[in-house]
Design a protein around this nucleic acid. Sequence first.
DNA 1: CATATCGTAACAGATACTGTTTCGGAATGA
DNA 2: TCATTCCGAAACAGTATCTGTTACGATATG
Lengths: 140, 140
Amino acid sequence: MVNCRFTVAIHVLCVLAALHPKPVTSEFIAGSVNTNPVVIRRILALLRRAGLVKSQPGVSGGWELLAKPEKITLGGLYQIVRPGTVFAMHSQQPNVLCPVGRNIQRGLGSHYQKAQAAMEAELDRTTIADVLKDVLGTSQ
Amino acid sequence: MVNCRFTVAIHVLCVLAALHPKPVTSEFIAGSVNTNPVVIRRILALLRRAGLVKSQPGVSGGWELLAKPEKITLGGLYQIVRPGTVFAMHSQQPNVLCPVGRNIQRGLGSHYQKAQAAMEAELDRTTIADVLKDVLGTSQ
DNA sequence: CATATCGTAACAGATACTGTTTCGGAATGA
DNA sequence: TCATTCCGAAACAGTATCTGTTACGATATG
């Protein structure tokens, strides 16, 4: 992974959970993440599509959490923001005239899937509520 | 992950294992992977540093496998080529004036480490010998 | 109706990776 | 000895992706 969408998505949900049920503007969240509001809205749009948050335009509008923080797992969140697959295949197709080149991608696919599944299963053991508790408990 | 170093490294080792103990040139391997020999040498240099292969310059030179394919796990290989950490933190430091921003990275770190460890543990269950058998067994 | 906020497109800048060229060094073997 | 083959490494260009930014229209509030 190279992008930090996943990390920012967790950050955003923690802020929403901490301030729930107050609606929070993308500008406020951007202030905590230290980035531009549009970056936050892009990620919130993904979360809304998944039904985790809702938005309200206009004065005293903003974003609000719909799901319970104890019900949002990091694994589920990973599926939503999908920062790409963990393992990338060749950038160009390997040589089909070579027995290895011809079959390597098929051979690797299932191993890659199992490894990524193991990672997501581990992520599923943690929820936004857990992370928020960690975060607010630390140092204060 | 965005790069495909890991996949190419597996591919390279499969070719070396299949042709062992014949020395294989980076040009030949590049032909199977369908890329430039220098790309292959860059990865082979990492593997040599780890003691998995040796190189021999000159006529009838090339690369040769030193380790047994059954002893090279995908998890170990991942450690060697290290295509970056799976999870990226914020690209800029979050706002320390916000309780969430101040502690989120510390709070997330351990969860990220556990998830990546689970992935590597799963990768450790497969060796180059396994992959090669899959590859050469498929379709033929 | 003024204001605040989201929605979205468009674009610039940065970064990382892949692929390529180039040239020097080392080993072989005729 | 010397031509050939191959690795070693630096340098550079092209590509892709992501982040950050600007801009402007749409929508809701009060």
